[in-house]
Amino acid sequence: MVKVIARDRADVLGEGLFWDARAGKLLWTDILGKRVNRLAPETGEVESWEMPDVTGWIIGAETGGYVAGIGRSIARVSLDPFSVETIADIPGQTSINRVNDAAADPEGRLWLGTMPFSCDVPTGGFWRFDGEVSRADATPYTIPNGPAIDPAGCFLLHTDSAMGVIFRYALEDGQLGERQPFIAFEDGWGSPDGMTFDAEGHLWVACWGASCLTRFSPEGVPVRRIELPASQISNCVFGGADLDRMFVTSSANGVDEKHGGALFEIDPGVCGVPAFLYRG
């Protein structure tokens, strides 16, 4: 069963999901709408904050509050009361680029992508932030997405949605190993976008353009597909007190769909793992 979360607006480009276990609430961003949203699942209340620039993601900080990718920078964010403080600029970014997706690893480092607004030239990159921003991978990216770190912190998955391939890197002491193709999307699968692991080690991938989520085995084989009533599915995360619910974002940008830009809730039939926090 797919539930559409009731609210008074659709996301231009919903993304950046984070389950805040401390508050029992879900956060996500509307990148192009320049907003951070927060859902209280028990009451259905949805709150929204206007941000100073496009906002790709928001992740809990171990010291309290959040960090977020805003424009071409990383910022500390408080929602209660609201404040934004830039803590780092991503080097070499011009006005044609913006932040996209990100994830924290077990050591509290951030892994994040930048990409062009146009989505059609490889001016983006993949970055690590551990108090300083450094290039994680020298490869140029067009639409960097994912990233997802396995629960043990042994490897990282990342994708360039424009290529339709999910790559795997060994992860050791904050350094990435050689980039290896892991899952090459076939015709009809859509493009790989946001992703997350479940407690059984399977990977859930938002399939942009294919109106679905796909669950892949640890070997990269598709084992389940959940259809959703929007074509541009952008990200997914486990939530709820037992991490047994899944929330899914979508985009209304460029499409005329009843549920384009909606936030969905589904019963995945498995549990997730707790989100890693930023430790800086």
Rank of each mutant, 00 (worst) to 15 (best):
L156Y: 06
G131Q: 06
S161V: 12
G125Y: 12
D160T: 10
G124P: 07
M163I: 13
A148I: 02
N145I: 01
D137V: 04
P151H: 09
S134R: 15
F126H: 00
L156I: 08
T142G: 08
H158G: 02
P140D: 07
P140H: 06
C154S: 14
I166R: 02
D130I: 03
F155Q: 04
P151L: 11
A152K: 14
G124M: 11
I143M: 07
I166C: 12
R128F: 06
P140R: 01
G164L: 08
G125D: 02
I149V: 15
R128N: 11
A152N: 12
A136T: 06
F129P: 07
P140I: 03
P147M: 07
T123G: 10
F126S: 00
H158Y: 07
G125M: 06
P151F: 10
C154E: 14
G131H: 03
T142V: 14
G124T: 04
G164H: 14
M163V: 14
N145C: 01
A138L: 10
D160E: 12
F155C: 13
R128D: 02
G153H: 03
D150C: 09
F126Q: 01
D160W: 03
W127R: 05
S161R: 00
P144S: 14
L156S: 05
L156Q: 04
F129M: 09
I166H: 00
C154N: 15
H158V: 09
G146V: 00
A138Q: 10
I166D: 01
G146D: 15
D160R: 00
